[in-house]
Design a protein around this nucleic acid. Sequence first.
DNA 1: AGAAATAGAATGACATATCATTCCGTAATA
DNA 2: TATTACGGAATGATATGTCATTCTATTTCT
Lengths: 200, 200
Amino acid sequence: MKMTATQRRKVRREAILDAAEQVIAERGFHNTGIADIASHLGMGHGTFYRYFKNKADIANHVLERVITRIGETAQAEDPTAANSLEEYRQQSYRLVRRMLDLAEQHPQALALLHLQATAIDPRRMAQMMDTYALYIRALLQNGVDKQFLRGDLDVVVTAQLIVAMIFEGTRRVFPEKADRELAERWLQAGITMMFDGVGR
Amino acid sequence: MKMTATQRRKVRREAILDAAEQVIAERGFHNTGIADIASHLGMGHGTFYRYFKNKADIANHVLERVITRIGETAQAEDPTAANSLEEYRQQSYRLVRRMLDLAEQHPQALALLHLQATAIDPRRMAQMMDTYALYIRALLQNGVDKQFLRGDLDVVVTAQLIVAMIFEGTRRVFPEKADRELAERWLQAGITMMFDGVGR
DNA sequence: AGAAATAGAATGACATATCATTCCGTAATA
DNA sequence: TATTACGGAATGATATGTCATTCTATTTCT
């Protein structure tokens, strides 16, 4: 196949990012050497430095890529779409199911986020949670504005609570092999508690 | 002060654990050298090896100590005490408030748990969450048995959801300086969502 | 009691290992 | 041929864990 130099460069850079993501997810950030990433691609580790400045550089790029990918899935719903509690409930189902699907389909990305993100950059991890909470907050605020959610709802903190539940869900759904049945239980239990509470 | 040799040994061992907890919480597990712990106590780093086998050894002991301390606070309520929804709500308030107080009073222990535990031993961290979830599950089951919680409640998953919220709360309540006002908001919002749901 | 002996605790220089990063001779490409 | 890419040996920084030696407190002896 013919490729320009810049194309090839881009492809290889991407391949290095893929390899790094996999190796870091498997062995952990601090147990991963540059040589491990390179040998995973069958290339000399000196070559690595032609594509990334250093270890922190690639780790940050890997993390950023994972966060972006997850963020796209997480924020797929239009926050102002729902006009009733029932619509909102359906929207929530879709949103959470999408996240659990993501966890099942890309366990590696989620593993990296849950187990390595704080090692790579603890602030970035916290920032991602904040960003996601802001989005959930917009969803809640829409409900308060349209009066199908309680007016006295603390949208800021409640959004953070919901994010915490969703994230823990994505963590628990991929213990070795993804567990679809467990994912459905999480979805059901989460939405039920959120909308109906635990009382009878 | 007079002390037997064994007493002195115990005291110093404890001092090393204290120092290690602090230094690891501040600088992170992988950025902490044995020499850092030793110099924090003004002792030679060779001495360290008279008290702990190696770095993994002390890290595990530090983590275990933190988990034990937190576990004692977390499981202070009798799971079978509540006999009505209102009693259960009060019990939940106490339980969560205790956890948030803990986070405010021992930010270092919580920081270690949230930021370093996965670095030290990811399985132990997951196991601690499981243990705590089992306890919350017992609380929920009590409510189901006594019929003040909905009979179709998925107590296993709901317990995991609640644990996720509480833990995220303890994380968010100590950003640099503890924020008591924020803690109250978390408590309020968390209990409200759990018992009443978000709908109006 | 005071001096000498012993046990075990503390020390830090050092041997060893592990990487991240650099360097430079060779290969591929334009 | 000139330029750019590649590979892996070389380098240096850093950290761990060991050990011969020094120090200290307690016990034994005179």
